[in-house]
């Protein structure tokens, strides 16, 4: 019984922390972008404009819940929660620190990949149900981009799995005690990072929603809290990819003992979140077919090569 309560407590804590972090990431992103672009950003509501998030949330909740008459109503409503749900589900397997995790699945990594695959439905269904040409184009782009990049994402991680000999994330972190996988798997890291950006469809790979071309892409027709769910989903996605990068390549919670493991994990994740924001401030957006070409012609061979070489080395070491 007590383990049951412990689980529920843990789930509630993780859920609340994540949604809060995702919400304040919006503030963080706007402030950081402003800093890098020589302007102020939101600085009126509360200290440093921190309460802008509260104001935004209130606004989103009280907006008219508008469903366009030409939309496919059921699917239109189902689509937005999918992205949030799948991202939150992925967090189930992330070890924030020793003992601080929800489920230590022995197929953890596969579970993460499965969940991120399901996330595509959100975009495809949302874009399709909107019955708007811009949304449709965005959904098409989103579907092909995310499905393609999943392939490289999965392949890039297999090196890590070989080195640690496990799909379980706790094992992967512990396997990095001697040496972080960023040292032994730099190529895998780069590919995972690129695929991660594509999966969260953030600039420079925000092609499904490219605002100068497709207005808002797959979520053009969404407003109010339905739009809010896409929005929060995106920021939770950033947090997820950042924590996955930390877990898989940067030793997870590991770090010198003067700080507790949870703090190390949070700090490292935060650095990657900032990196995501910096990317948005600095890079233009490639064309959709260029992104595809880049994936299939460069990332795929490189990922396979990385896999073969890692496999060979592991084989040699074991002999």
């Amino acid at each position: 019984m007590s383990t049951m309560i412990q689980y529920v407590l843990m789930i509630v804590i993780v859920l609340l922390t994540l949604t809060t972090i995702a919400a304040w990431l919006i503030w963080l992103e706007r402030r950081m972008l402003a800093l890098w672009q020589d302007r102020y950003g939101p600085n009126r509501a509360g200290p440093f404009g921190l309460l802008i998030v509260v104001a935004d949330t209130i606004k989103l909740f009280f907006k008219e819940d508008w469903i366009p008459p030409f939309a496919d109503k059921t699917i239109f409503v189902i689509a937005p929660p999918i992205i949030g749900t799948t991202v939150l589900m992925s967090f189930v397997i992330i070890p924030f620190a020793p003992g601080i995790l929800i489920a230590d699945l022995n197929i953890g990594l596969l579970f993460f990949l499965a969940m991120s695959s399901l996330g595509v439905y959100s975009i495809v269904l949302g874009g399709w149900a909107s019955n708007n040409k811009y949304s449709l184009l965005g959904a098409l782009r989103g579907a092909s981009q995310m499905i393609s990049y999943e392939v490289f994402m999965g392949l890039s991680l297999m090196g890590v799995v070989m080195l640690s000999g496990s799909f379980r994330l706790t094992d992967i972190v512990i396997a990095q005690k001697g040496c972080w996988f960023i040292i032994t798997q730099p190529v895998g890291f780069v590919i995972f990072m690129i695929a991660g950006i594509a999966e969260t469809h953030r600039l420079p790979f925000d092609i499904p929603e490219a605002e100068s071309e497709l207005v808002a892409g797959f979520h053009s027709e969404y407003s109010g809290m339905k739009f809010g769910m896409f929005f929060i989903g995106e920021y939770m996605g950033i947090t997820l990819i950042s924590s996955m990068v930390v877990t898989l390549f940067f030793g997870g919670w590991l770090g010198p003992a003067f700080l507790p493991p949870l703090v190390w994990f949070t700090l490292k994740t935060f650095v990657f979140i900032l990196f995501f924001i910096l990317l948005r401030a600095s890079l233009p957006r490639p064309r959709y077919d260029q992104l595809m070409e880049y994936g299939w012609k460069i990332l795929l061979p490189v990922a396979l090569l990385n896999l073969i070489i890692t496999g060979g080395i592991v084989l040699m070491m074991n002999k």
Binding site: L283, P284, R285
Partner: peptide, 16 residues
């Protein structure tokens, strides 16, 4: 022009 291609920052520097 840069913004149309998805580069968000230059337009702010240039307007300054």
């Amino acid at each position: 022009f840069a913004q149309d291609l998805g580069q968000l920052s230059p337009v702010f520097y240039m307007f300054t």
